[in-house]
Every structure is written in C-alpha cells, then in structure tokens.
Amino acid sequence: MVRGSISARRRLSGYALTVVGATCLVVALVPVRDRLGLASDALLFMLLVVGAALIGGLGPALLASAMSAALLNFFFTEPFHTFRVHEDTDVVAVLVFAAISVMVSWVVDLAARRASAVREAAELEAGNKLRTALLVAVGHDLRTPLATAKAVVSGLRSQDVVLDEPDRDELLATADDALDTLSALVDNLLDLSRLQAGAMPVRTRPIPLEDVVAAALEDIGVRHRRVLVDLPDRLPEVVADPGLLERVLVNVVANAQRFATDPPVLRAAWERGRVVVRVVDHGPGIAIGDRERVFVPFQRLGDTSPTGLGLGLALSRGLVEAMGGTLELEDTEGGGLTVVIALPGVTAPTGREAVSP
C-alpha cells in the first residue's frame, strides 16, 4: 500500500498471523502429511501468505513466504527434519512454491496500494467538492443577509436620506431579519463542523416532547407560519438533548414549510420502545434516488431561495444520530415527503402505550 497507509498495529498483526499461523499449520499437518501430500500442504501455506499480505502488507507476506518454504522443506519433504531434499521433484516444488509465494505477496500488496490510492483520490476529490461548495455558499448565501444588513445600517446613518418613523421601523425590521438569517446560517455551519470533528456536546435526558415542540414552533414563528400539531395525551418522555432536538425540529419543520403550500403536520407516536416524530408535508417530495443526496452538506435540491446553505437535513440527521436516534425520509400518502425522527423513549408503564390518534 502507499507508504504509511498501513498502521503499525496492522503490520504487527500481520507478523503475528505469520508466526502463529505457520506454527498451527505445522502442528495440524505433520500428523497427516502422508495422506495429504506436498501439494495440499503447499496450498495451505500459500493461504497463509495471502492472509499475511492482506492484513500486514508486503513485510509480513515476505516473512510468511520464507517461513512457509523453510517449513515445507523441513517438515514435509523427505528426508524429514533436515533441509536436504531427497527427490528432485520435491526440490522443484519447494522452489516453485517460494517463487509463487513471493509473486503473490507482491501482487496482493500492489493491488492494496492501488486500492488505497483510489480511495485517497476519491476522498481528496470529495474534500475539494465540499470546499468548493462552501466557498460558493459563503460567497452568496452568507453575503446576501450581510449585505442587506449593511445596506440598512448605511441608509440609516446617511445624512442625505430623510426617513419617517414607519420607514425607519421597516428598515430596522429588515436588518433584524437579515441578521437572524445570518446568525442561523453561521450556527448551522459551526454545528456541522463540530459534528464532523466529534466535538458536539450531547447531554441526553428524559424530557416531555411537547415542551420541545412548543419551543421549536416559537423559534420559527408559528403564529405567522402555520403548523398542525398532533401529539398523544399520554406520550412517554423522549430521551434527548432538549437544545439539539429543538434545533432538529426547527430545521425539519422550516424545510417542510419552504416546500409545501399547505401547513405541515407534526405528529408523534410510541413505537417499539421509541418515540417517533413525523413531520408530514404535501409538497413536491423527493425522488427516491435523490434522498441520500439531501443529507450531504450544501445540497439544495429544488431550493432556489437565498436563505439556506443546504445544511438543514444534513445537520438534523447528524444531531439525531448523536442522540442515539435515526432520521429517515418516507413518501407522504397522497404526495409529499415525511421526515421520520425516531429517538429512545422512557418505557411506558403497562396500560400506557401511546399511539397516534
């Protein structure tokens, strides 16, 4: 493989496999060497060589080749327990085995090097695409609310523009909305980077789902953008981080509102020991082939609005998985998309199973 691509632990494992495997083969094959024959013994030692190459690379494979050739000579060719060979055909067999085992070691290691190089090239390409998408996003989506706020502040400070009180209030409201949008975008970027770095603090505890739903709907301004809520009266508590779950619900509900003309429906149920939240919309939906793509950062399938980076679903899935849950997409009956969030719940007492009405 490429230099440094095999860890020291893997190399040590390869050497250990060589020594232990060769010893075990000798112990197992010596009692039956008269029945198996030299060809069968050589094939089994060849299997050891290939295994050492796959696990530890070229070094362990070459050691396995040398040990296997020596052991075949010493234990399995007459006269036994010497390095002299009685039959010319056995000399040829041992030499051919040694040559083939070295070639197999080289070929297996070369194939592993090429696979590693292809994998690294793919990772580099993916990283370049992500950086390019981030630059595009920063160049447009982040600059738009920033430019709006800057224009409003400049207009308010200008001595050449006379504004009455309603116009001033409207401009201040526009700047406030732009800064809220910018703050939300930056928060999403920072949270996604923390998730990818494994630095996102997650503090789960049993909490009432209705409290988190109420806080999430307040954040997105439900009075102006309707959401239909359908929660059972006796739903068990969900085990989650309340702040992270609120972020997830805000992202998912806002996404549903963006694409659907009718108000989305948020409902929950207790299913097989988990609290399952469904956000149902009757918008255009997402084709099955594109559903995994929407969980890739900066993917905005069908979204041409300037108010998002395509991070909502990617961040939401990451947050849900960090809390020990899952986030999947389903078709809505009659057309549309349903986001299904399943999280651990506090087991309901007997007779308290809660289901959707």
Score class of each variant (00 low, 15 high):
V2C: 04
V2K: 13
S5F: 02
S7L: 09
R9Y: 05
R10V: 00
R11W: 01
L12M: 13
L12Q: 12
S13L: 09
G14D: 05
A16I: 07
V19W: 10
V26K: 02
V26E: 02
V27R: 03
P31S: 03
V32W: 01
V32D: 01
D34P: 00
G37C: 06
D41G: 02
A42D: 03
L44K: 01
M46Q: 13
V50S: 03
G51C: 13
A52N: 05
I55C: 10
G57Y: 01
G59L: 05
A66S: 13
A70D: 05
F76S: 01
E78L: 05
E87P: 00
V96M: 12
F97D: 02
I100L: 15
M103I: 11
W106N: 04
D109S: 15
A111M: 13
A112P: 00
A112H: 05
A112Q: 11
R113G: 09
R114H: 11
A117P: 05
E125F: 08
A133L: 10
A133Q: 12
A137H: 12
V138L: 15
V138I: 14
L142F: 15
R143G: 03
T144S: 14
T148N: 11
K150C: 11
V153S: 13
S154K: 14
S154D: 15
Q159I: 14
Q159H: 15
V161H: 13
E165W: 10
D167I: 11
D167P: 02
R168P: 11
D169N: 14
L171S: 07
T174V: 14
D176K: 15
A178N: 07
L182Y: 12
L185S: 06
L189K: 08
D191H: 09
S193F: 10
Q196G: 09
Q196F: 10
A199Q: 14
P201L: 09
R203W: 07
P206L: 04
P208D: 06
A215K: 05
A215W: 00
L217K: 02
E218T: 12
G221K: 05
R223E: 13
V227P: 03
P232I: 10
P236N: 08
E237K: 10
V238F: 06
V239S: 07
D241A: 04
P242G: 03
G243P: 02
A254W: 08
N255T: 12
A256D: 06
F259A: 10
A260V: 07
P263F: 11
L266G: 04
A269Y: 04
E271N: 12
G273H: 11
R274P: 01
R274H: 13
V276M: 01
R278W: 06
V279P: 02
D281T: 07
P284D: 11
I286A: 03
R291F: 07
E292R: 09
R293C: 00
F295H: 04
P297I: 00
P297F: 00
G302C: 07
G302A: 08
D303Y: 09
S305T: 11
T307W: 04
G308H: 07
G310Q: 04
A314Q: 04
L315Q: 08
L319H: 04
L319W: 06
L319Q: 12
M323V: 12
G324S: 09
L327P: 03
L329S: 11
L329M: 14
D331C: 07
E333L: 15
L337G: 02
T338K: 02
V339A: 13
V340G: 01
G345Y: 01
V346L: 14
A348Q: 08
P349T: 13
E353P: 00
P357V: 06
